[in-house]
Design a protein around this nucleic acid. Structure first.
Lengths: 259, 259
DNA sequence: GCAAAAGTGTTCCTTTTACACCCATGT
DNA sequence: ACATGGGTGTAAAAGGAACACTTTTGC
């Protein structure tokens, strides 16, 4: 069993204070939309969205990219900024107090939190935070979930069965899903959730999963193709006793736009 | 002629640092969409969107409401958060250096900026800023433009003839207009730009102005009424030699939603 | 009555939906 | 050949655009 290490030093102020980036990392496989959620390694069941501060010399888009990269191992991810929450009473105090109460070894002679640098960090963490929400669409086959040093585990959770997360993180996921749905009609960005090549059937299943409603096969194919956003490749021979479907791919990977 | 006063003391840190709210206040009259833009009272032509910091105990929506209230005199405004810009190199240094160069009286024995408290404020203002953009839709008849103590003037400018503003403020207006256009199809929120009661023709002219394209009269009326968001009142007799149009109004004023 | 503008109705066309048909594939 | 599933075509339905008709108002 590993010993619990102190929290990283934050009060150095190489970060923008009171501003966090919270990331909803979406993945998809077999008609199931998932979110990558780490569980903190402290006692008590604390789940929290991948989240961190923004370096002073870093664009906010870059910061989101960095956070998502560190958890998935994927260098460049498709991501989208979707909301800012900034209620005055939005802080990590309730969560941190509960964490400390359940983890008494954090207090005492080798305390991280009770004195000196630790106190300053406690103050840093319990101030009111403004949070910029980003969601990412990643290929679950390429993503290799990585724990941070604060995590006990990190796992894909079906979006319909998410664990209870700290603060307002469950609500953030709900809003992210809502915004993802809003953009589905016009853009093919959502295909970043699929492997590089895919069949039209897989696209349809993805859409049906996200919007939670069925589509008519023929019409769906025509609608997607009419967007002229897909490249048709060779056929995919699966060995099944039926006509082989074409494979498609997005011509170029699309990443976060600078607005 | 008034003497130039020192900038308000900001370094007290009763505000969230490095985070600003920038507001695009839209007004409308006679087929013209306008934005309320103050001009700073320093030498040199500096225009800047109404903008300020967020108090530590204040929701970001409230902060936007406060900024817009202080410039329009209207207590509750319809507003919408539309983007966050957070490039690492986004700061007010270029602007502030230019302002100081043109306003030498700010430097010297009674300097605001060159020493003591002033230096700290200079540092405060020239750090990198993350900006949350809000746009407001106000009734130009009710709004009474109010200068802040930093302003020489504040005026409505036709959105097609905006003055050059500091930093990226012109780009922020462009994005605000883009987002406003996106929401037009589904919602009637844009009617907050009109007086409390209005005719269908005025609604149509408003839509045509914002989207910069004509609509067919009959179809437009049917489309707007089909949204079931308007209350039909008595007729409006103008004295003109034609049928009197109905007056309409939004049933309840709608303000910024808490998301 | 007449001109002007508002409210509503009618027709036509485009888009969407539902369904059918044919084709490829492996047993 | 046949069952299975993919690609495309076609007809019906719905929605939107263009236009016409009628009503109201003041001169």
């Amino acid at each position: 069993m590993t010993t619990i290490q102190p929290l990283p030093t934050l009060s150095e102020q190489n970060y923008i204070q009171q501003l966090t980036i919270d990331c909803v990392i979406f993945g998809y496989r077999d008609r199931q939309l998932s979110v990558l959620v780490p569980k903190l390694r402290y006692k008590g069941d604390f789940w929290a969205l991948p989240s961190w501060f923004v370096f002073q010399d870093e664009d906010i888009d870059e910061a989101a990219q960095r956070i998502i990269r560190s958890r998935t191992g994927i260098e460049e991810n498709y991501l989208e900024q979707f909301q800012v929450t900034g209620k005055a009473n939005r802080n990590g105090k309730a969560f941190l107090d509960q964490l400390i109460e359940l983890n008494s070894e954090l207090i005492g002679p080798n305390a991280t939190i009770s004195e000196g640098e630790g106190l300053r960090e406690y103050e840093w963490f319990t101030r009111r935070f403004v949070s910029i929400g980003y969601y990412a669409l990643v290929d679950m086959d390429r993503a290799i979930p990585r724990k941070s040093e604060l995590d006990q585990s990190i796992e894909w959770y079906d979006i319909k069965q998410l664990p209870p997360m700290i603060m307002d993180h469950n609500a953030i996921v709900t809003k992210a899903l809502k915004m993802l749905r809003l953009t589905l009609d016009q853009e093919l960005n959502v295909l970043n959730l699929l492997p590089e090549t895919f069949t039209m059937k897989e696209v349809q299943e993805l859409y049906e999963t996200i919007l939670n409603k069925p589509f008519e096969r023929g019409n769906f194919q025509k609608k997607i193709l009419s967007l002229n956003g897909l490249e048709r490749l060779e056929k995919k021979y699966t060995g099944a006793a039926n006509k082989a479907p074409y494979l498609y791919r997005l011509p170029k990977p699309t990443f976060c736009e600078v607005s």
